[in-house]
Each structure stands twice: as C-alpha cells, then as structure tokens.
Design a protein around this nucleic acid. Sequence first.
DNA 1: TCATGATCATGA
DNA 2: TCATGATCATGA
Length: 224
Amino acid sequence: MQLNQLFERASALAGHRFADVAAALNIPMPENLRRNKGWVGQLLEAALGASAGSQALQDFPELGVELKTIPLDAQGKPLETTFVCTTPLVDIDQLTWETSNVRNKLQCVLWIPVDGRRDVPLAERRIGTAFLWQPTPAQDAQLKADWQEHMDKIALGEVETITAHQGEVLQLRPKAANSRVLTDAIGPDGQLIQTLPRGFYLKTHFTAQIIAQTFEVPHAPPAR
DNA sequence: TCATGATCATGA
DNA sequence: TCATGATCATGA
C-alpha cells in the first residue's frame, strides 16, 4: 500500500459512525469502552489494514507511519493523553533520542480524531478528519529534551521519583494491568529493583496544539 | 474540573 | 511478562 492510498482510505472514514464501520467489518460493538479501552483504535487498525500487530513497530512499517486515534470533546480538544510506547528501564546505556522508540513512533503519525464524548452512545460517535503529522523542528526538540530528562533519571536509578508532572510535552506514567505489576529497573545504588512498568505519553496541551495548527484556517480579511 | 495514577482486553 | 490498543475514576 502507498501512503496516498492509506491517507485516502483514512479520509474516507470521516463522518462515519463507529457502529457502521464495525458492522461493515463484522467487528462486535461493545456498549461502552469501560472494558474495551482500545476498541476504537483496533477498529481503525482493522479498517485501514495495519499490520504490525503486537510488535514494537510502527503500524505501517513499510510506510514508516504510526496510526493514532485521538478522542476529542465537543470543543475539539483532546480528552486523553496519547500513549506512545512503553519505557525501557534496563539496558539503556546505549540508547539515544535518534534511535529511541519514541522518536521512531512519532516520526510520522496518521492522526484520526474521533468523538470521545462519554455522554454520546458509542455506536453513534463518528470518526473525524484524518491528517498526517511530522514533528516540526521545535516539536522534535521539545520531545527530545523531555525524553532525555526522563531517561537520565532512569539511568541514575531515579525512576521512582518521576511523576506525571514532569516533562513539558512528554510524560512518564504507569502502563500496566494494575499497580501490583512489577518489572526490572535500575535502583538508587545501581542495583536491580522491581518497579511498576511505565510508558511515555503525550500531554494533551501538546496534541491540542497539533490539532489547532492542522485545522486552523487562514483568517478572512477584516470586514470593512 | 481535570490531570494523575490506576486500570482493562488481548496476543505472543 | 511484555507488547499492542487505550480510557477510567478519584484525588487535588
């Protein structure tokens, strides 16, 4: 598949109800997302033929494109942060921003805004207008700075001091089935410790900015 | 009210 | 367990 073909397919989904897309693909539709949090993302993956499955790859490796749904409220603002990838906590000494999973995933993103309003039945919510995004040099620099700061702390054995408040645009938060899940990490004295698995997430003000810059229309000349 | 920390489903 | 797909729900 070519990039323009993928983009055309994604564009053609705009305005369609989740229920109709699911029916066309024979995918069962839950009442709500409470026990199916990833359902909309998986629906769109199926609709567009994403291939990577559960591998740590972009959704369309041959195109270098990552697919991300983003739930919006009635004002068109993101309702949730955007998960990027799990955070490596051991064997990180050779990692750089340039070779990081975060940069790899965010190099080119096919964003698909979706109606995230909880007061609208899932079946009636609609898909929005897809768009392709690549970080501007300024955005790339922000992401890199946050990534470097988080990874420096992790390398120093300070992962457990990191909260979601840290990072201008990229935050670190738990990414696990529940708060008892444990994985290896570097401890304060350089020893191996057990800690909650973490993931990288884009803060909503960052994705809101991406959406604003994408859909902002040139203003009309002043009336006179 | 809203973001943080907690949580849910599934496949390999 | 760890990767994918994320949203829920409560404390601040």
